[in-house]
Design a protein around this nucleic acid. Structure first.
Lengths: 206, 206
DNA sequence: TGAGAATCTATCCACATGGATAACTTGTCA
DNA sequence: TGACAAGTTATCCATGTGGATAGATTCTCA
C-alpha cells in the first residue's frame, strides 16, 4: 500500500507537491527537495516555502532542521557530494578506452538535476566562502576519478587527465543547458582519439 | 574635471555605489551594473534596487528602461554577448600553436565578471526559454572562434575543435570558481600537446 | 505505560521586493 | 525662445520572504 518504489527522488519524476514523508524522514526529504528546486527553479527560488512544498512538509520544518536558508544550502551541497561519490559515474574500471565516459551522455540526460545543482553551487561558492571546501572536495573527487580511470588506460600524465576532466566538465555543462546527449557522445569519442594520440605520440614535435 | 578614464566598468574597480551617470547614459550603466551584480552577488540579488545602486541611479529607472526584471536580464545577456564578440579572446589569428588560448588565464583572471555572468545565465536559460536563443548564439560564436583558430593550426576536424572548446569552457569555469590562472595555464599547455598529437597521429590504433 | 525528547505544524511579523504612478529635469528642434 | 519628448526621481502598495514562537504529534525507552 505505502510501498512505492523508492529511489533518490532525483530522477525525472516531476510532479510537484510530494506526499508527506514519514515521521523522521523530513530532513532527507528536504535535502533532496532542495536539489530539485535549485535545479529546476534556480537559487533565487530556493525559499523555505518552495523547498517545503517540494518535500511535502511545512516550511517551519526547514527552520527546525537547518536553522537558516544558508545552512540548508550547505547541507544540500554535502548531500549531493555524497550522491556523486556513490554514483561514481566516471570510473568504469574496465581498462577499455571505449568505456571511458561511455555512459556519461545518457547519465546526464537521465539525471540532470544533481549536475545542474552542483554547477549552481559552484558559482554560488564564489561569493559564499563557507561553500568552498565542499566545492574543492567535489572537484578533487572528480579529478581523482578521471586520473585513476585514465591511468588504467596507460595515460599516467595527470595534466592530460586534468584536461580530459575539464573537457567532460564543459561538455556536461553544455549538455544540461543547450546541447544534446548525441553531441556529447560525439565529443567524447573525439576526446578518446586525442587521448590515445597523446599517449602514443613521440615526446614532442613542431 | 569630469574626465575619468572610462572603460567597460567591468574590470576590477570594485567600489560600490557608482557616481551618477550623465543624462542619457543610464540605460547602458544599468546593463553594465547588471552584469557586475549578477557576477558578484548572484541572480538572487539582482534586484531593481541593487542594480540601480550599482549603476548610480534610482530603481524607478530600471522599470522605465526595461519594464521588468526579466527583460533587464535578457538585455544584459545580449549586451554581454556583444562584449564577448568585441573582445574576441579566443582568436589570436597568428597561426602559432603556442598562441592558442595563450592569454586566456590572464584574461579570465583580470575580468571574471563577464564570464561568471554568462555561466549564470546559461544555467538560467534552462528554465527561461526566452534566453535560449542568446545562449545558443553565444555558444555558436565561441565554438566557431575555436574552430577557426584551430583550422589555422592545421586542425581541420571540427569535432576536435569542439572538444578543445569544451575543455576551455571547463577550465574557465574552474578558474572563476576554485582554480588558479596558473592551473589553467598548465592545462592549456597539455591541451595543445594533445591537439598536436591528434593532428599528427596516424589515422587510428589500438 | 508514561514522560521526555525529537519531529512536525500553524501562525505571526518585520522587511525587502517588483512594479505602478506621478512629478520633475534635461535635451531637442522648430 | 518654448513646447514636446525622453530621461530620471520620489513615492506608494500588495505580495512573498526568512525566521521566530508556540503548540501538536510521534517516537523512545526506562
Amino acid at each position: 500500500m505505502t510501498a512505492e518504489p523508492v529511489g533518490t527522488g532525483l530522477t525525472a519524476e516531476d510532479g510537484e507537491g510530494r506526499d508527506r514523508p514519514r515521521y523522521g524522514e523530513g530532513r532527507e526529504a528536504l535535502l533532496r527537495a532542495a536539489i530539485r528546486v535549485v535545479a529546476t527553479s534556480g537559487l533565487r527560488n530556493l525559499t523555505y516555502r518552495a523547498v517545503a512544498r517540494e518535500a511535502g512538509v511545512t516550511h517551519g520544518l526547514v527552520a527546525h532542521h537547518f536553522g537558516s536558508r544558508d545552512t540548508l544550502l550547505e547541507e544540500a551541497l554535502r548531500y549531493s557530494l555524497q550522491l556523486s561519490v556513490e554514483t561514481s559515474s566516471l570510473e568504469s574500471g574496465t581498462g577499455q578506452i571505449d568505456d571511458f565516459a561511455r555512459d556519461l551522455p545518457e547519465f546526464v540526460d537521465r539525471e540532470p538535476d544533481v549536475q545542474a545543482f552542483q554547477y549552481e553551487l559552484i558559482l554560488e561558492s564564489r561569493r559564499r566562502p563557507e561553500l568552498r571546501p565542499y566545492v574543492e572536495e567535489l572537484y578533487d573527487y572528480y579529478r581523482g576519478a578521471a586520473r585513476r580511470e585514465l591511468a588504467r588506460l596507460g595515460i599516467q600524465d595527470p595534466a592530460l587527465a586534468d584536461v580530459a576532466y575539464a573537457a567532460l566538465d564543459g561538455l556536461v555543462f553544455q549538455q544540461i543547458s543547450v546541447a544534446s546527449p548525441e553531441n556529447t557522445r560525439r565529443s567524447v569519442d573525439a576526446l578518446r582519439t586525442m587521448l590515445l594520440a597523446a599517449r602514443d605520440a613521440p615526446p614532442a614535435r613542431d
